[in-house]
Design a protein around this nucleic acid. Structure first.
Lengths: 239, 239
DNA sequence: CCTCATACGTTGTCTAGACAACCGGCAGCG
DNA sequence: CGCTGCCGGTTGTCTAGACAACGTATGAGG
């Protein structure tokens, strides 16, 4: 099973074997792996050596470790290392019309520096903040926050809760059409909360888009920040 | 200094203190931190506890650990956690004209499935592959590979080595103008080699763009894959 | 039947010590 | 002068054991 003193660390060999076991389906999605103690007996090594291997598997996004319960094979994870992301493409021009939208929060708040700048309003002015998650085929793929100036859309929260659509809500306020001014795209690691909302490990990166939408006369009506699970989403820019 | 039994793990406290020490400049870029043994004496904990803190600092991209030498504060790292990325914007339409271009390799090779599909040629046809790195202000920011069909540009390697520019090389072959058909953008973790070329830690994500350029009549002339150090680059899509 | 406390199994943290692998410098040798 | 081998210092790996923190099932008591 394991070879000692051949230049390959034991934890690396264990990591490779568990990875293969998961890829082969011996441990299926959601299954619990043997406990650290059990694995240490099975492989004939110390528990700490097992822990090293498991912690890298967790970084890889292959398993999820829960204190007091055990280690579980992550659901909906394509076998490492190829094909992690689907060929699902988000067309930027339709970005906000995500099927399977889940409203997480809709409240009024004061605009901070960044939001005020994007919406071209004074800092501290009141904006409506709508946070929602997007799904495709039941898979959580996006987690977005949008800001709207309250002076333009008073009482937006109530309207939105009823209409459940940004487009229809803006129409209700007389904005029949709006267009995207620009989109900034960055990649970074998610915070704990973001990873939780996207149902992904903290160690996988996210794609973040920051965009500003303007109405027909060029007035900013929406500033949105959208996080995408990078393993499942790619952004396609058509020219 | 450290508080025991207050619910915050010792390694977390040590991590925070070292992080603060680096941010404050007490340890400047390139400086060597005290050895693990030295830190364990200083903090009054076991060496393994120090190692836990250091390993997370390395994941954060704040330090670089070298066996047999020590731990060093990474150069050109903006203080964690804000402002990791510059406000340098890559305009997609001018993406290939990077100032400070470094030619890494220019060879002929056979097109694999993906390249052949993008260039609309048969798999196995010969293509010219040019790998280069881009810098801005001396900071490595991109690492790109471009593919050109050899049937359209025979002897391209020699011409490119002389002209040192994709645009001028294509001009030499009669392609006076070309445009971008589309750009795919994904985020992922870099391989060891990619991280090395981008002078960044393996634990920071990269932005990857895949793009196809076509000539005036719509024939694909270039397929490019470009990696960006996500801590320093954001992509701006103008509408 | 429901509730609460306890016991047990699990992962998280910390300590202690050992040896391997690697790096850099230095002494000795050709 | 250059090369080699050795040595001390550093990080990497592995073992052994202890206790804390957390979750769940079980059983006693209401």
């Amino acid at each position: 099973m394991l070879k000692r003193g051949n230049g390959v660390a034991l934890w690396r060999q264990i990591h490779a074997q568990l990875e293969a076991a998961i890829a082969s389906g011996r441990f299926g999605p959601g299954d619990r792996l043997p406990s650290e103690h059990g694995l240490s007996v099975e492989f004939g090594v110390n528990r700490h050596t097992i822990r090293r291997a498991l912690s890298v598997l967790e970084e890889d996004g292959l398993i999820r470790v829960e204190q007091g319960r055990g280690s579980f094979v992550r659901e909906q994870v394509v076998h490492y290392p190829v094909g992690r992301r689907t060929r699902f493409s988000e067309n930027l021009s339709r970005q906000r019309r995500t099927p399977g939208n889940i409203l997480l929060a809709a409240v009024d708040a004061e605009a901070d520096q960044r939001v005020a700048e994007a919406l071209d309003i004074g800092p501290g002015e009141v904006v409506t903040r709508i946070t929602s998650a997007g799904e495709a085929d039941g898979r959580r793929i996006s987690y977005s926050t949008a800001f709207f100036p309250k002076t333009l859309f008073p009482g937006m929260v109530r309207v939105y809760r009823e209409l459940k659509s940004v487009t229809r809500t803006l129409e209700h306020f007389g904005v029949t059409d709006y267009s995207r001014k620009h989109t900034r795209i960055i990649a970074r690691m998610p915070t704990g909360e973001e990873a939780r909302e996207l149902r992904q490990p903290k160690t996988r990166p996210v794609l973040v888009t920051e965009s500003v939408n303007v109405d027909e006369s060029g007035v900013p009506v929406e500033f949105g920040v959208c996080l995408f699970a990078s393993d499942w989403v790619q952004i396609l820019v058509e020219s």
